[in-house]
Amino acid sequence: MKKIKEIAIYGKGGIGKSTTTSNISAALSDAGYTVMQVGCDPKSDSTNTLTGGKSIPTVLESLRKRRGNLKVEDVIIEGFNEIYCVEAGGPEPGVGCAGRGIITAIEFLKQENIYEKYSPDVVLYDVLGDVVCGGFAMPIREGVANQVYTVSSADFMAIYAANNLFKGIKKYSNGGGALFSGLIANSVTFPAQKDILEDFILQTKSTIAGFIPRSLTVTQAELWGKTTIEANPDSNQAEVYRKLAKSIYNNKEEYIPSPLESDELKNWAESWSDKLLELRKQEEGDFKI
């Protein structure tokens, strides 16, 4: 059996994880690889831009309806360029346990030997924000993903979530869990944003896998229910994603990052406070148009 590259992509909610993941999937698929994308978020919209903006049946909802008669074909839906799209799904907000849902969904996919049936070259897990409980750490435990990326902007809360992810990776690394392969710097427009993220990776002994500038092309494509790769294949932004996808596919770096303790993180953020205020002003100016 061929070696499958299994990648988990984490990051704070709203930071652009699903957008980035879907564009990486689309770019890899365009480059000729067989790609599968698994959305691990109860709101189950990870793969929307690969399926023309439509929602697909989720694993958990289907498991519930089919009561043991669920077939993988029912929940693995072909999207743009024959990318296999899967959504784990989960409960309504405020009910039940979404973390357990992720565990159940991934266990189902593993039990059904989907890798043998579909033979993907790359599997991307797009996982909900913070590693708040054991369920959301499922993709980084032994036997699921082997490389982890985090999408982060220079916003403090996004960095905070990335730092939490590092803690999760450190914990599971002892038991053969996934290792870190790099931070994907999203919405990086100003030099100061780059500086902040570069300093953060220095502090945490990690690396940056690539920079993605903020772009209206992405927003436009999303409104059409498409990835940038599909909607604007010739745009600069599509080229950015293609480059990122290629470097991620070829990336051999795998290591345990050094998360900052909460006090350290707080002190570090304080040291950047003046810079951040300056940035905020620039951003506000940017949007005044």
Binding site: L60, L63, G90, V95, G96, C97, R100, T104
Partner: peptide, 10 residues
């Protein structure tokens, strides 16, 4: 059972 853990047992 697991269904209720995930979706709630109310």
């Amino acid at each position: 059972v697991e269904e209720h853990v995930i979706f709630g047992g109310e």
